[in-house]
Design a protein around this nucleic acid. Sequence first.
DNA 1: TTGTACGCGTTATCAT
DNA 2: ATGATAACGCGTACAA
Lengths: 353, 353
Amino acid sequence: MPFAKALTIKDIARRCRVSPATVSRVLNGFAHVRADTRARVKQEIRRVGYRRNGVARSLVLMRTRTLGLVLSDITNPFYAEIARGIEDQATRYGYTTVLCSTDNLPKRQREYIQILLERRVDGLILGSVRLREPEVEALAQGEGFPVVLVNRRLRSSRVDCVVVDNSGGARQLVEHLIRLGHRQIAHIRGPQQFSTGYDRFRGYRDTLRAHGLPYDPRLVVAGAFRYADGRAAAHRLLAGPIRPTAIFAANDLLALGALEALAEAGVRVPQEMAVVGFDDVEPSSYRAIGLTTMSQRIADMARLAVDLLVERIERGRRDPRQIVLPSQLVVRRSCGGASETPQSGDSAGRTSR
Amino acid sequence: MPFAKALTIKDIARRCRVSPATVSRVLNGFAHVRADTRARVKQEIRRVGYRRNGVARSLVLMRTRTLGLVLSDITNPFYAEIARGIEDQATRYGYTTVLCSTDNLPKRQREYIQILLERRVDGLILGSVRLREPEVEALAQGEGFPVVLVNRRLRSSRVDCVVVDNSGGARQLVEHLIRLGHRQIAHIRGPQQFSTGYDRFRGYRDTLRAHGLPYDPRLVVAGAFRYADGRAAAHRLLAGPIRPTAIFAANDLLALGALEALAEAGVRVPQEMAVVGFDDVEPSSYRAIGLTTMSQRIADMARLAVDLLVERIERGRRDPRQIVLPSQLVVRRSCGGASETPQSGDSAGRTSR
DNA sequence: TTGTACGCGTTATCAT
DNA sequence: ATGATAACGCGTACAA
């Protein structure tokens, strides 16, 4: 029982005693139609509630005005904001957006991309790529199919992408902790196969060294960017050989999980342990949480990604473009240094979300 | 520069010296093809990387295997979970999902539905409807187009829907507060044009009366289901003529905003003010928040909605079906009654999100 | 077992 | 200004 006996352009044509071509011209607002016939056709169209068939149009026009959006998990508030920004901008250009969550599984990503290509989406926005992704590169570079990466970059810079300065952001966070007097700074790091995890870890390690602090692998534990991982990681840190005085988590979800673990263990934040994250998702701004973090202009990232993609689709741009956005330190309670910059980190200022 | 010179079934046919029909049979795994020709065709298909054209297939098969998902705002964690559940189940059935956020604007909802219909989606899942929605009813009932409502119901019960027992949930929350000794229970209510706001408010009012407590409109303020509204509403309550001892917010986002306002005003929760919400979104379970709320089986809701829709699409079911799921009280710190049921409300138990 | 030919609903190119 | 007709790529009777 698919989309049933819908009216076609021919039905309208017959009832108006004109040809299908004329109806098409009216529908698309083309010239060379007498005013009164145009009116007659328009009237009939709305009288019978005709809706043109986008599938047939796509077939002949060779485009679907559909974008594929592939990301890790829409329930991650960070990706939810990305998706929203992309949807909004896509709508402005007249595109709809197909949503695909991969849970960071390469197999799922591959399957989804195949499905989307078969559906003939006009372009792809990928927010779940690993650093090495030969198939994606082949598709974008080799086949010349419109692809834009968002949030995560590829090792090679031959595919369009929009990301934030992750290593620079990590550096700012770690330097802030160092300024506050911390010397034993732990890191809950994200998967190193993703540029976000990789760049933030490198920013952490390099910043320690740049400040003459030793890099100690025992202060680094791994997580997968999820709440539960942050909690488990923090417990492992507390049970480890060295007790850090601060934790830099690779993203907010990990940091929130760490806060949970610290609360469970009775470790007071920030007095006994400073915690900082990365992303500035909504819950981080809640006063009861008050997580110090790096704020990203997520909406801008999403908007720019769509702009790049549409430029490729509609204007045939071919040169790969990399956009790196700055991120901004937001100091809140969790790092113990909120008094330094009382104006920022005030969640009261964020009222419209 | 739309989807370029892609290979077609004819190209494959020519290169294999068979007819397009044979290639089609191979592609769809149909019988009546000699094993060796089948192998030859398959080989060629993968050699040249042929991908069948879903648009052309949709045109002839009269279905797109695409679902339209219309909801208020994907950045709302409640809807993000809904969307994820729907996407997952849709994928199982071989459908993709187009995402549309309306911000609860009727105009946007109407526009999105029109776009989706023009794109010939096979069915529609609506999570943003108001209680009265004549056009939706006409589409579902009148035209017989597959539509399922999720989370919110219509006033008439002539359209499929999957919702939770909102008034019952509200009753449970209010009764819990009454059991804890509260007599001045305020309500931050959601928009009354949505069944969620309407049913929860009625549950609140009726439960007060059922327990011999007066219903006082001065203890009721309105919000739009968003964080900022909850914050503003709580501030208004604090400035009002009667100081409540407890607040029942119509959803978690409103409750979280209220918690923010109470913290700003220096009102201690739960000692000076108990707070309860509805939905049990992820942040509510964080220990630092600890919001007492009604937990919904969101994933079930989403799954059932897709099941209902697919049943309509593929099996032509016509009878309207209403599914009302139970919700469960989750007692945490914010209501001051956590000690009653120490086993529930322990966010430590939620590790995999 | 395989091939031919038509139709799905629309747009585009010619005529007229 | 309007109409006839050929694509677009695939599925599918029906013929061979």
